[in-house]
Structures are given as structure tokens and as C-alpha cells.
Design a protein around this nucleic acid. Structure first.
Length: 596
RNA sequence: GGGGUCGUAGUUCAGUUGGUUAGAAUGCCGGCCUGUCACGCCGGAGGUCGCGAGUUCGAGUCUCGUCGGCCCCGCCA
């Protein structure tokens, strides 16, 4: 090993360093020889810099540089000089170059499976299989450095607010319901299992009971659910909980955390207080509990109009009303033209989501509809009313969905986003933050014909809804709040129940028996009975937040070692089968996946 | 659990109606080149067409199965 000590980062050299002796260490980006002059570009995480040598100036070093290949690790001793008129304005270090007096190979490298460059479009599977090389790409290095800064800012902000960083266990008790848990066999007690924590929820509430009135943690959580572009099986939350606090206290803290991250990492100033919208309004206007407010194309509910016109001659409309369904429309302005094949593709997409079809109507000069299944039978009066409600102009296309509210919302919000992206309605560089509030406390589980907690069973109902806990659970709203950023849910939390009478009513509404209660949550209920302060909290999705801050398209671009959509690690090969002997050691037997 | 889409040199892709020896670019290797910076020029090597069956005189191409990547629905208290 060389005794050289690095003095500077490659990417840090500037005109101010001209004349200085430097020792650089890094990876060879390229080694271009142009006859008797050679240009070696050296890279480290700070950037790249050019090392230039003319053969006549030092034939020995020149010869030593000749065999260097991309990704070899080298040390360069030399002097910084100005490039003068040959400066490269595209590079931060482009005004200078290093003239080497010594070049030492620290390690050679095999030719990598793909080039370490941002402008090479290698398939993600190949990148993940050789992630250690992929992570050398400047774009990813930038993302991870920004993410590091985000963590640091979040910590500083929370510490400034008087929060304590406290740890909670990953190996926890298994609780059925909610997200599936990853299971970990406990060798010391044969036949028993831990679960990997899907969140620190219960433990952070216990901290409140214990008097650590402001807790936070930047913590991994584990959920064995199907993955998406914005969901990994293990992910990181900025998790916090406050005692003697209501929703506004929690929101102010989170606004400062997110606001500080944007200010210090991006130089973007978010509003001091974030706007709020109720769940009901978000669903009505956007069909989503995480609306992207950066563009329009709001939904228009037609139930009242259709009812007022007694169906208006459209059988589908009438039928939907009779079945208690929802009818929504959305106006695509004339400037955004959809071709026949575009529409066919959209219709195929929405059918895959459970829609019956894609209702549409082209609006003519006189307001008449064409290219529409409704055009022939709809009454003039209803048609004009719908046109007016949608603000339809000649040439516009109206899109319709009707049926079960859940499907209509899913399809219409998907359509809004798809069309908004397709026609580039979303302005670059816009940031729209929003608190979505007053979520339903319960959701009806149609399969099992009962109510389940929409957030978690310790979420406090709004005071005015407590009386309805038993009479009309579906109408109860929660003191829960989600933070939505450009259409992404980046944080969610609630005020917790600390009144055991209310907690009992919630459990009753959920149909949870006394024994079940004790088995699942006994220790928390026990703790809450020993003097629990009023408390509230929230958890922010660090990965999603990083994705947005970095402008990345996928969570995988802000996670160093992510898993694929099937939960595989293409680099290590995890997960793997375990042989019977090793399984026996933890008292577990493996069975074949049954034919389905 | 379901729908869609993709899989061909190291990499990114093309490959017609099923038909001779599967192409291009880039990377890699060799040579030339004194201001390149996606350097340029000349030459060369490089293929289990994801895998397995089937149809056929003949399969990268058609059929079935399977594995994997990506996107979406369900799911994610």
C-alpha cells in the first residue's frame, strides 16, 4: 500500500487551487491519449477532474499512464494549473487540470458490465445485479448524498424542537391484521416467532406513557406486502410522537422538518403553514386521498344533476343511481387531443381496474355530443346541465365513470394523473404540499362484513363523532392527517386515544373481543391505564420524500440496495432456500407452494 | 391473487411472411494521433436469441409452460 495521503477531492478543485501541489485518489473515468499528450479523467464522489501530461515533459510518468483503464483505482501526485483558453465550461473543475509528477496504480479493475456514466441507459436489472458499480454513477451518488443531508436536517430540526432520538425493537410480537409481517423464528424458544416491526407505533406510544414527551427516530420498517414503484419491503420512516399535543402541534413540527429539508437541501421555500383539505373534499374533487394539486382536471360529480333529471334518458346513469353508485365526469380541454388508439388503450387500462368501460362525449359547437354512447338518448336538458357543470367548451372531450364509488374514484383519479402526465399539464419545479384531514375512522371490510380501522385502532375519533361510534361507525371521522406532496403520501399520523372508555368503544365497533384485545394489545392497554398523557404523532416516509427531493422516478434511485418488485435482491440473490438442517436448527419445516 | 409489457453480443437495440453465415451502435482488444473532454481514424475479437418442451424439412420469429425485469389493480391497520 502506498504511503500517499489524499489532500483533495477530485471534484473539489477550482481556479483557487492553481499552483498547489495535490494528491488525488479516485477511479479512472477515461484515459484519452492524443499522440504525445494524454488526458486522464479521475473521479471520486465529489466529481471529476482532468489530469493532463505531455510526453516531452515527463516520459516516464507518461508511459506509466498509458495502460490505465476505466475504473482502475489510482493515486495522482501533481500540481494544479489553469487550463486557460482550453477550459471546459461544462465541468465544475473545468477551469483547471492537474499535471502529474507521479501516478500510482492502487488497484486494477475488470471491465465493468456497464459504463459508469449517467447518460448510459442500462437496464435496471443489470444495474441492480452490479449495484456496487451502479452506485458509482454521479446521479445516484448525488441522490444518496442529498438523502444523507435530508437525514441530517431532519435530525437537527427535531433536536431543535426538543425531541429525543430513542430506539425501538425490530424483533417484536406478531400481531395479525394490518400489513403482513416478516417472521423470524426464535431458536431459543422452539416453535415461536418474532415479527419484524412494521412500524414503531406501539413502542413510541409507550415512550409517551413513560414521560419521554418528544420522541423521534429515523427507523427501518418492514412490511411483507406487494411492491410498487414507491413501496419497498423495508423502508425508512422519520417517526415522531409528542405528548400534551394535538394535531396542530404535530403538523407544525412536521412542517418545519419538511420545510427545513426543502430549504437546506433544495433551496426551495415551502409555505410556512401547509394548506388543509378534508378527505371528503379530496375524494370529491380528485377521487384520491393524495391529490396532486399541481394541475387541474378536477372531477365533477353528476349524481345530483342526474337525479334532478331522473336519469336524463341515459339508462346507465339511472341504473347507477338506483344502485347507490357514483357518477363522475372530467373535462379534457380541446387543446389535448386523444387519438382513437389512445382512447382504446385508456379504455383497456380502466377495464383492467374494474371499470365497465370508458364513457366519453365529444362536445360540438352547439354543445351537442358525438362519439358517445350517451349522445343518442340523453335529454337536451341533462346534456346542457352536464356541459355547464363541467365547463365544457366546443372541442372538449368529457370522460365519464359510473358504478361503485371506490372503482369510480380509482379509475377517475388514475385517468386524471395519466392524462395530466401525458399532456404535460404538471409544471416543472412546482411543489404543492397539503394536509388531508378528517379521514374516516373505519373502513367497511366487505369480505368479512365488518369495520376495520382505517389508520390503526388507537386513532382518536373527532370529539363530535364519539357518540356515533356505536350507532354509525362508518360516519365517524378520525383525528388523522396525511401529508401529501405533489400527489404522494409522504407522512401520516393521528392523535391517539388516551381515554380508555373511548378506546373500549372503538374496539367494540371493530368487533374485537376482550380476550382478543388482551392478546393483541394487552401491554399497550395496560400501559395506557397507568397515566398516559394525551399524545399524537406522525411518521414520514423518508424514501418517498427523498425520491421527490431528488427528482427521482423510483424509490430504487434513492435506496442504496433496493429490492425488485418481487422482493429479490439481484446482487446477493436473497431470499434463498434454506436447507432442512438449518431449518431444523430453528425448528421450522418448509412446505411446497400449493397449486392454486 | 389479477392485468399489461419486456427478455437477441459486455451494454443499448434492430432482426420483414418461419428460410443461407443473426446485424448496428457503443464498450472491449491492437495500431495511429500534441489540447482532447461522448475525442477522432484504421483494424480485430465478441452470440446458450432467458430457460424447457412442442409444431415444422427448417424456429430469434409460431404454440404451451417456466424464470426474471418493469408498470398498474387488489393488497399496504
Amino acid at each position: 500500500m502506498s504511503t500517499l495521503k489524499r489532500t483533495h477531492m477530485c471534484g473539489a478543485l477550482r481556479e483557487a487551487h492553481v499552483g498547489q501541489d495535490v494528491v488525488l485518489m479516485g477511479w479512472v473515468q477515461s484515459n484519452r491519449r492524443k499522440g504525445g499528450v494524454t488526458f486522464l479523467v479521475l473521479r471520486d464522489r465529489a466529481g471529476i477532474v482532468q489530469v493532463t501530461l505531455e510526453e516531452n515533459d515527463d516520459p516516464a510518468v507518461f508511459a506509466a499512464m498509458d495502460p490505465l483503464r476505466p475504473e482502475w483505482v489510482v493515486a495522482v501526485v501533481g500540481k494544479v494549473r489553469s487550463r486557460g483558453k482550453d477550459a471546459n465550461p461544462d465541468l465544475p473543475t473545468g477551469a483547471v487540470e492537474v499535471v502529474p509528477t507521479r501516478v500510482e496504480v492502487l488497484n486494477q479493475a475488470r471491465t465493468p458490465p456497464f459504463e459508469v456514466r449517467d447518460d448510459v441507459d442500462t437496464g435496471e436489472d443489470k444495474r441492480l445485479a452490479h449495484r456496487f458499480i451502479d452506485l458509482r454513477r454521479p446521479a445516484i451518488q448525488r441522490n444518496l448524498m442529498m438523502r444523507s443531508k435530508m437525514s441530517s436536517v431532519a435530525r437537527q430540526t427535531l433536536v431543535r424542537h426538543g425531541f429525543l432520538e430513542l430506539e425501538t425493537p425490530y424483533l417484536v410480537k406478531y400481531t395479525p391484521g394490518g400489513a403482513r409481517n416478516f417472521l423470524v423464528p426464535c431458536r431459543l424458544t422452539p416453535g415461536t416467532f418474532y415479527a419484524l416491526a412494521e412500524s414503531p407505533q406501539i413502542f413510541k406510544q409507550l415512550f409517551m406513557v413513560s414521560g419521554f414527551d418528544r420522541y423521534f427516530q429515523i427507523v427501518k420498517c418492514f412490511r411483507d406486502e406487494d411492491l410498487r414503484q414507491d413501496r419497498q419491503p423495508e423502508f425508512t420512516q422519520i417517526d415522531l410522537e409528542l405528548s400534551f399535543a394535538d394535531e396542530d402541534d404535530v403538523q407544525q413540527v412536521m412542517e418545519d422538518v419538511v420545510g427545513s429539508i426543502f430549504r437546506e437541501v433544495l433551496g426551495v421555500e415551502l409555505p410556512e403553514r401547509f394548506p388543509k383539505m378534508t378527505y371528503e373534499e379530496a375524494m370529491r374533487r380528485f377521487g384520491s386521498d393524495k391529490p396532486d394539486l399541481r394541475f387541474g382536471m378536477e372531477h365533477v360529480g353528476l349524481n345530483d344533476l342526474v337525479a334532478a333529471h331522473d336519469g336524463g334518458g341515459v339508462a346507465f346513469f339511472k341504473q347507477t343511481l338506483d344502485e347507490g353508485g357514483l357518477i363522475k365526469a372530467m373535462r379534457l380541454p380541446a387543446e389535448y387531443a386523444l387519438s382513437r388508439s389512445d382512447l382504446d388503450k385508456l379504455e383497456k387500462d380502466v377495464k383492467a381496474m374494474g371499470a365497465g368501460g370508458l364513457g366519453r362525449a365529444k362536445v360540438g359547437e352547439d354543445g351537442a355530443w358525438s362519439q358517445s354512447p350517451f349522445a343518442k338518448t340523453i335529454s337536451d336538458a341533462l346534456r346542457e346541465a352536464v356541459n355547464q357543470a363541467c365547463g365544457a367548451q366546443p372541442g372538449d372531450l368529457l370522460l365519464f365513470q359510473m358504478g361503485k364509488a371506490k372503482v369510480v374514484h380509482t379509475v377517475m383519479s388514475h385517468l386524471r394523473l395519466t392524462l395530466g402526465r401525458k399532456f404535460e399539464m404538471i409544471p416543472e419545479g412546482a411543489w404543492k404540499v397539503l394536509w388531508v384531514t378528517e379521514f374516516p375512522l373505519f373502513e367497511h371490510d366487505e369480505e368479512n362484513g365488518r369495520y376495520v380501522a382505517a389508520h390503526h385502532p388507537f386513532t382518536s375519533p373527532r370529539a363530535e363523532d364519539v357518540d356515533r361510534l356505536t350507532s354509525d361507525p362508518g360516519a365517524c371521522r378520525a383525528r388523522a392527517y396525511d401529508l401529501v406532496l405533489n400527489g404522494n403520501e409522504v407522512a401520516g399520523g393521528s392523535v391517539r386515544i388516551h381515554d380508555s372508555a373511548v378506546q373500549a368503544k372503538v374496539f367494540d365497533a371493530l368487533g374485537i373481543s376482550e380476550s382478543e384485545k388482551q392478546a393483541k394489545f394487552g401491554f399497550l392497554l395496560d400501559a395506557l391505564s397507568y397515566g398516559a398523557p394525551p399524545h399524537a404523532g406522525i411518521a414520514a416516509g423518508m424514501d418517498r420524500l427523498a425520491m421527490l427531493v431528488c427528482g427521482a422516478q423510483s424509490l430504487r434511485d434513492v435506496i442504496p440496495f433496493p429490492k425488485t418488485q418481487k422482493g429479490l435482491d439481484l446482487m446477493t440473490g436473497a431470499p434463498t432456500a434454506i436447507d432442512a438442517g438449518q431449518l431444523a436448527e430453528v425448528y421450522v419445516a418448509s412446505i411446497e407452494k400449493p397449486e392454486s
